Simulated assay, not measured.
Amino acid sequence: MTAAHTGFANALSDHLTLIGRCVRLTRRNTETLVMSIALPLLMMLLFVYVFGGAITTGTAYLDYVVPGIVLLCTGYGAASTAMAVTNDMTTGMIDRLRTLPVRGSAVLTGHVAASVVRNAASTTIVVSAAVALGFRPSATVVEWLLVAGLLLLYVLALSWLAAGLGVIAKSVESASALTFVMLFLPYLSSAFVPTHTMPAFLGSISEHQPITPVIETVRALLTGTPVGDNGLLAVLWCTGLLAASVAFATWLFRRRAAA
């Protein structure tokens, strides 16, 4: 076996080992897992049964709000990645890895993979709850696969960004604070109300931020309405954010780990 093959095999083994570790940590951290599911569910109930009757969207409000709740759910799930990374950075985990023939950067991959698993579970539960409340998507199998692919791209982008923020943070509490913008942006989008109902200034921000085209694409695919330019914009935003976040997180990790 060549050195290149050996190097690849070792790298793959390191990443798989740390992915397994992070997934196990996710299962044990029941508080974070429950909150990433319970909070979006409560938000959906709040908007549908408390505010929904006063909001006009041209369609059943439950059908309108579910895509926004799904993205809100993935945002909460991805944000917890920052706290998990900070915990590893500040409790000696990285120092222990330095004494072993393990690629330390695989820690980030492990936490991002755990975020994907966590978000897949929470999104499934949220969508199932929406169906129980009366949500009836008209998506075909292909459209469901497109929704899943876009959400995966979105979760990867947010999780890598959260991982980078986790490297910067000096404590778990500050990591939670750094992810505030990530959690706030869905509220300043078309997740809960049409953008044209907002004041002109806020409506312009909402229409030109990355989450709105993602929500509109998911909404169109699930409800059988035209996707338009939103599909391309959503992919471009998510791909660009993912590339920038991976570079940002890995550069910061190598710099801090070497310090």
Rank of each mutant, 00 (worst) to 15 (best):
A139E: 08
V193T: 13
V107D: 10
A243I: 13
I19P: 07
A54E: 10
V48C: 04
E207Q: 13
L165H: 04
Y187M: 14
Y49I: 01
V127L: 14
E207G: 12
R24I: 00
T56K: 10
G58D: 00
A139Q: 11
T56Y: 08
I55H: 01
I37L: 15
V141S: 11
G240W: 06
P199W: 11
R28I: 10
L158R: 11
I55Y: 00
W237L: 05
T17P: 02
T123K: 12
M182I: 14
A113I: 07
V107Q: 09
V50A: 08
T250Y: 15
R27F: 15
F248E: 06
L100F: 06
A9I: 12
A258Y: 01
P67V: 05
T17G: 13
A84Y: 11
H5G: 12
A163Y: 04
V48A: 06
S128Q: 11
V218H: 01
L158A: 14
T140E: 03
A3I: 10
A84C: 02
P40H: 09
I168T: 14
V23D: 13
V66D: 00
A113R: 10
T86D: 06
V126G: 08
L62P: 02
G77C: 02
A3G: 15
A106E: 08
A132W: 08
V131P: 02
Y187P: 00
F51C: 03
L12F: 12
R118D: 02
P40E: 00
M93H: 14
G149N: 09
L145P: 10
G104E: 05
E207V: 08
F47L: 14
A4G: 12
P67L: 03
I37Y: 06
R103N: 12
G7V: 10
P67N: 07
T195M: 02
V172T: 15
D14Y: 05
A82C: 11
A234Q: 07
L145W: 07
R96S: 09
H196P: 09
L133K: 09
T99F: 04
A113P: 11
A84N: 13
A130L: 06
R255L: 03
T124P: 03
L46F: 13
S204V: 14
L232I: 12
S174F: 07
S159D: 01
M1G: 15
R256Q: 00
P186V: 00
L232E: 09
V167T: 02
V50G: 01
T140N: 01
L221D: 02
R27P: 04
V117Y: 13
W251G: 01
L12Q: 06
L161W: 06
L165D: 04
I55C: 03
A106C: 04
V147H: 06
M198Y: 15
N87Y: 14
F192V: 03
Q209P: 03
L236Y: 04
A60E: 15
T59Q: 13
A139D: 10
G104Q: 12
L236M: 09
F135N: 07
L145H: 09
A200E: 09
G104Y: 01
